[in-house]
């Protein structure tokens, strides 16, 4: 199985290549990609240099152009596809059908990967994308169990990539406008979720209160580490219960299940984290590379060193295990 690694900056890209990535994925510095955060992402020149470096180490580069084209501004997305192809990207990671149609028509030789943001969660959905646009790989949304994935793999004619480590969307990806409901900015349209520009922290007595836009997302008593107010991971009141209504602050780690994923027919394992620094990328990529090479009994000890890096220092298998539902 390939190890697909994130890079938000050229230096993180170098670290990922050096640490053992089979492919590095990244995006342009604009709203065409779903990690459109200040200070992140690549200019055309930076991408060209990064691709050249990756090539020299026999590592592939995937370019994520995985937001949905803003009506009337499609040229920005078409230009991103044209440039990624021209600069030698090994695959384009796309979510928008209109952009997939453009790519299939203008660049039929380009390798098209279906972004997790497209939300292709079953065989008919994947076959639509394979038949309509020639998709070669699908990144599955984090809503399927491993047995679901195994059944799906038997019915489709393209490769499967799954997220195994890093941030966890609780909601089906590409189908969530919670962020724009609160801030006006969304993953689908702007490539951002719960953007920092709308985050405020406020001291209230001994508690630290985190807010996103006009809404309180969490409240931390003195001594509790204050997490980032990603809105689906806040504390809320529902009926008589109060707490993490959607998901605890935890991140995804399914490295304990890599044998099952391989047997299910998964071709590639993806690490989330283009917004993370180069030290994080180096540590996670090298650890996952060692874990992939190790026997099942050695893996837990290798992975345990990453737990300190996880959100809330807790991990979950998410929807890959049925009991999460």
């Amino acid at each position: 199985m390939e190890l697909i690694c994130p890079a938000g900056t050229p230096s993180a890209f170098h670290e990922a290549v050096n640490a053992g990535a089979d492919a590095v994925y990244c995006g342009f510095r604009d709203e065409t990609n779903a990690r459109n955060f200040p200070g992140l992402n690549f200019s055309r020149d930076e991408l060209a240099q990064s691709i050249a470096y990756a090539r020299s180490k026999e590592v592939m580069t995937f370019v994520a152009i995985n937001t949905f084209m803003r009506a009337g501004k499609e040229a920005l997305w078409y230009g991103a596809v044209d440039d990624a192809v021209r600069l030698g990207a090994d695959a384009l990671i796309l979510a928008d059908f209109g952009l997939m149609a453009y790519t299939a028509e203008r660049h039929p030789q380009a390798r098209l990967h279906v972004s997790v943001q497209a939300s292709a969660s079953n065989a008919d959905a994947v076959n639509f994308l394979v038949e309509a646009f020639g998709a070669k790989r699908v990144v599955l949304p984090r809503i399927l169990t491993i047995p679901d994935i195994a059944k799906l793999a038997k019915k489709i004619s393209c490769e499967i990539e799954v997220f195994v480590f890093g941030g966890l969307c609780v909601m089906a990806e590409g189908r969530c406008s919670l962020s724009s409901y609160v801030t006006g900015k969304s993953p689908n349209m702007n490539g951002v979720c719960s953007p920092a520009s709308h985050v405020h922290y406020r001291q209230d007595g001994k508690d630290l209160v985190s807010e996103l836009g006009d809404f309180t997302i969490n409240r931390f008593p003195a001594g509790e580490a204050a997490g980032y107010p990603t809105l689906c991971k806040g504390r809320f009141d529902v009926g008589d219960s109060s707490g993490y209504a959607f998901e605890d602050p935890a991140s995804l780690d399914v490295m304990a299940h890599i044998d099952a994923l391989r047997e299910a027919g998964v071709s590639a394992l993806k690490i989330e984290g283009r917004q993370r620094g180069k030290a994080y990328v180096a540590e996670v990529v090298s650890t996952l590379r060692k874990t992939l090479a190790a026997g099942p009994l050695e893996r837990p000890a290798l992975m345990s060193r990453l737990h300190l890096l996880s959100e809330g220092q807790r991990t979950t298998s998410g929807a890959y295990e049925k009991r999460w539902r």
Partner: peptide, 14 residues
């Protein structure tokens, strides 16, 4: 606004 594999409605009732 969103849909999930997890049922937050059921989760709110344990």
């Amino acid at each position: 606004l969103a849909i999930s594999a997890r049922c937050a409605h059921a989760r709110s009732k344990g």
